[in-house]
Design a protein around this nucleic acid. Structure first.
Length: 361
DNA sequence: GGTAGACCTGGACGC
DNA sequence: GCGTCCAGGTCTACC
């Protein structure tokens, strides 16, 4: 008999808004159904690599017309098989990580104080953002980051689908989990290249998997708030296939939001939205300076600003379908943006941070 | 320390 | 339908 769990999220939590807060919600094994407001994923519980994987459907029952009305309502998690008590505990732990339910409410409130643009408002359906969706494991977050480097979004979708279908365990629902580090470590690079179309990333992905599988990654140290950001950043740069952008992105996935993973998309944002001009290097420097007053919340402020820019073009993220909008939005959006006239003037940002978040100089 | 070129794939574009 | 070009971040060799 399928197992059902009930999870009480923090009082600010809205599943549609907070699960659809980062692009990974569109990458296999994840899926979001706008019609039913259901987040679906397939998990390899305990990473044991034996038996069936488990497909789960997460919903937040209630009146969906108003997100404000859903805040803090219990989450319902339906699994496609009967779970033992240890599996139920593991499932609860993984869902908590994916949805960042364990991030203290006080930290989210602190972010809203720093950047009031995202503070909750009774009648605003998307206000109150603060939590960013991520993967059930650090390993999956790292590989997803590598598959998003030097490639357009549709290719990232293909790579993640391939990794799941070729190496991930299958559930009773005929869906595949993301493969474990052990499974990827045991794969041949040529297999990843040929069947998962990861291209030249093949050896790097296998090397990363070996590091995780052999216990060479100290996750507790990486996640420990006492570990300085600079030390984590330097450590990540030592990993194969991880450069400055990937390291900064992994840091935000670890819950360290002070650094910005800036890429070509950031340059576009700096030009189109913030109104900066000059060389890419100069624009990146200006973007770093722009968000510096946000301190430990810099990435959240940057990301939600970028996210809302996408939503202005493609509608709210919880209306995106993985196989339609979610598949094409970045490439199509960029193409569309090229047709838009560049801002005419602009040494200073067009959209400045609110005065309340500026640091006195 | 800074820079150029290679890496690989999918998509856009021209013919 | 085919060939060519481009975008994308990291790595390595070179100055």
């Amino acid at each position: 008999m399928p197992t059902q769990l009930r999870i009480s999220p923090p009082p600010d939590y809205v599943l549609a808004r907070d699960a659809c807060s980062y692009g990974y919600f569109l990458l296999s094994p994840n899926n979001w159904s706008p019609a039913s407001g259901t987040f679906t994923t397939t998990l390899d519980l305990a990473g044991r690599g034996v038996g069936d994987a488990t497909t789960i459907h997460i919903t937040q029952p209630g009146e969906r017309a108003s997100h404000a009305h859903l805040r803090g309502r219990a989450l319902r998690v339906n699994a496609d098989r009967t779970l033992t008590d240890p599996d139920r505990a593991e499932l609860r732990r993984l869902v908590t990580r994916i949805l960042r339910l364990d991030e203290p409410e006080q930290i989210v409130r602190d972010f809203h104080k720093r950047d009031p643009r995202y503070a909750p408002r009774a009648k605003n359906t998307c206000a109150g953002r603060g939590r960013l969706m991520r993967s059930p494991t650090l390993f999956e977050d790292v590989i997803k980051t590598v598959t998003s480097c030097n490639v357009t979004w549709p290719s990232t979708i293909i790579m993640n689908r391939g990794l799941c279908q070729v190496l991930g365990r299958r559930s009773a629902s005929e869906l595949h989990a993301f493969p474990t580090a052990e499974k990827v470590a045991a794969a041949r690079p040529a297999t990843l290249r040929a069947r998962c179309t990861v291209g030249y990333r093949d050896q790097r992905i296998v090397d990363l998997a070996k590091m995780f599988a052999r216990g060479k990654i100290n996750e507790a140290w990486l996640e420990d708030p006492a570990t300085p950001d600079d030390e984590v950043f330097e450590a990540l740069l030592e990993w194969p296939g991880i450069g400055p952008y990937a390291a900064a992105n992994i840091m935000q996935l670890l819950g360290r939001y002070a650094r910005l993973p800036l890429d070509t998309e950031s340059i576009r944002h700096g030009k189109a939205v913030l109104g900066y001009k000059g060389t890419d290097r100069a624009i990146m420097a200006a973007i770093h300076k722009h968000y510096q007053p946000m301190g430990a919340h810099a990435f959240r402020s940057y990301w939600f600003e970028l996210w809302e820019f996408y939503e202005a073009k493609r509608g709210p993220s919880w209306t995106w379908e993985r196989e339609t909008t979610g598949k094409t939005f970045t490439a199509a959006l960029l193409k569309e943006l090229k047709k838009e006239p560049a801002p005419t003037e602009a040494r200073e940002p067009r959209r400045s941070p609110p005065a309340s978040r500026r640091r006195a100089t």
